[in-house]
Amino acid sequence: MAPAMDTILDMRDVIMGKDEAEAAVATKARKVDRDQRTTVGVPFVEEPRMICREVNVFYGDKHAINNVSIDVGKNEVLAMIGPSGCGKSTFLRCLNRMNDTVASCRVTGEILLDALNIYDKKVDVVPLRAQVGMVFQKPNPFPKSIFDNVAYGPKIHGLVNNKTELNDVVEDSLKKAGLWNEVSDRLDQPGTGLSGGQQQRLCIARAIAVRPEVILMDEPCSALDPIATATVEDLITELKEHYTIVIVTHNMQQAARVSQRTAYFHLGDLVEVGPTDRIFTNPRHQLTEDYITGRFG
């Protein structure tokens, strides 16, 4: 741990120094060339919750993520954007080891959650995934009642001792997910009977119910209509108070609305990271600019 951390701190200084120098250059509109694939911007933060260092992901022989280093700060929303197939989902799924379910997938490098290396052999994925929850692209409520959907996590993790505690957790989670008012009178109805936006908020409630620290969201609104999307976005902004959120999105306005920092991925490389408003107003890498101005996507 110690040597790795030292080099990380060194790197941070180096990069921050370089970054500032570059910032001066960049304002004079000279972009980093398309061929250069080292990360531009500041991938590190003062108060990190998750630390990723030199992460590489392979699917068999295919190199899907190439040497990515980035921090996820406490109580921030980090947005990950990039063209299709650039590895956003792959990287996101590394953060709670969902990639373990893909047989051909191999991950190297370090990913720390509060100083715990989650790829350590001794780490059990069960509590890890309870700490780092996940919401998927397509709402995937279980074919059970609304109540059972939310109660699923607390039950399997033994977070509650009796029925009243369980009821409280379910109610609390649904309230945090902004769904309580809509479903409180029909908790015994199937979760699959809700509308798409409600289903996605149910999935968020389901993730919240296991009291995670980090919530990973993989294009959570891509299957939703604009109104449902707005509701979910509001929810993300509220959840930021209590949770660290990493969100993958195709929708750049969405990234701009909900996130504090944005990371741009390109063909497995982390090309640029920075504060969201800076990325969208003044990208420093030519590829980032191409993407956000819609030259490819």
Binding site: V126, P127, R129, V210
Partner: peptide, 23 residues
């Protein structure tokens, strides 16, 4: 997606089979 949802909540394989897949 059902399996992913369950694993994403930290369920083990046997819990996923028993509580999600078989039902």
């Amino acid at each position: 997606a059902m399996r992913d949802g369950s694993y994403g909540l930290g369920a083990t394989k046997s819990e996923t089979i028993k509580l999600v897949i078989l039902p």
